[in-house]
Amino acid sequence: MTAATYQYVDLPDASVVTTRALLTARENISDTVAARAMMCIHGGAGFGKTLAVNTCLRALEPGEDVRKITFRARPTARAVRCELFTALDLAGEPPRHPSEFDRLLKTALAERPRTFLVDEAQWLNGEAFEYFRYLWDEPSTQLAIIFVGGAGCHTVLRREPMLSSRIFIWQHFTRLTPSEVLEAIPLFHPIWDDADPDDITFADSHTAHGNFRAWAQLTAHTRTALTRTGRSRVDQELLRGLQPPRLTTTPPAVSPTPVAVVIDPGDDAIHTHTALAAHHPPSGRITLHPGPGTTSVTGLAHDLLAALGKPPLLPGRFPAGRQPACLRVLD
């Protein structure tokens, strides 16, 4: 593994660790490419998705023609076409008209089987995903497509039945568990090879939180500290001596508490009385009883704030373009 390619950190001597997630990705990608299908690999930032996919696809080359496309902002349909034009190394200027552009791309894609790696796919909207589906549905294109991205990628694909029904394999990357950290990190870089397991656990619980990118960053800082101090081995004293910003990262995000919504469309009196009697916000039970004629979002927001025992943002209306405060919290 070259220094410049590991999790965006200049880290000499880092190795690609064959975690369970990487082994699963290798099988899933191999099956997807063989079937000329589409798959989605999704998960949080820094969990090793892109690294794993690049490693697995590299093993398929040169027998497989792999083209990588990375999106950094929400692309239009034309932007997607232009990225494909560039990825396929097509000559000349991109056509101006969509129909002409589509014919050119389908003709090029029909030449031989190809695999597209679409990275940072969380930036794609439904229209962009639909365009990839449009090309994949063309019988002559012989495409395999691997979407890699954050939660937004999975959400958009799942929202569209025509898209989600065509995904051959879904794989969710998660944080390394504490036991996986103790297995993987000594293999990841030589400075952790002889480290005490307790020190690795300390580093993970205070800084990395099972995130491979955070481990790469911490390893780079620790490697520098070893050189500056003349120490030969990592220990908690060295780790504590790192500058606080280097030893403090955002802890794992806490998943929001699930919300169950019970609706009584018939406005049955027994149901209403039971729901009102069960209302107890401290216990997480909220009964919203809108007044007659409540049809607007603003009116619903006022009723919800009242049910929560909070004053409304404004007595009558909300500032133009501003979403009601209670709805922003609930989002």
Rank of each mutant, 00 (worst) to 15 (best):
Asp10Val: 02
Ser15Met: 07
Val17Thr: 11
Val17Gln: 04
Thr18Ala: 14
Met38Leu: 09
Leu51Cys: 05
Thr55Arg: 10
Glu64Phe: 00
Phe71Trp: 08
Ala79Arg: 09
Leu84Met: 15
Leu84Phe: 10
Gly92His: 08
Glu93Lys: 11
Glu93Leu: 10
Pro95Asp: 07
Pro95Glu: 03
Arg96Pro: 02
Leu104Arg: 15
Leu109Cys: 12
Phe116Trp: 01
Asp119Tyr: 01
Leu124His: 04
Asn125His: 01
Trp136Val: 02
Trp136Lys: 14
Glu138Arg: 13
Val148Pro: 04
Thr155Tyr: 09
Leu163Asn: 12
Phe168Gln: 03
Trp170Gln: 10
Thr174Cys: 11
Ile185Cys: 09
Phe188Arg: 08
Pro190Val: 13
Trp192His: 06
Asp193Leu: 08
Asp194Asn: 07
Ala195Asp: 06
Ala195Asn: 01
Asp198Cys: 04
Asp198Arg: 12
Ile200Ser: 13
Arg213Gln: 10
Ala216Ser: 08
Leu218Met: 06
Ser232Met: 04
Arg233Pro: 10
Val234Ala: 07
Gly241Glu: 11
Thr248Lys: 11
Pro265Cys: 15
Ala269Gly: 07
His280Ile: 00
Gly284Tyr: 01
Leu288Phe: 12
His289Met: 03
Ser296Arg: 04
Gly299Pro: 12
Leu308Pro: 05
Leu314Asp: 07
Cys326Ala: 15
Arg328His: 12
Leu330Gly: 09
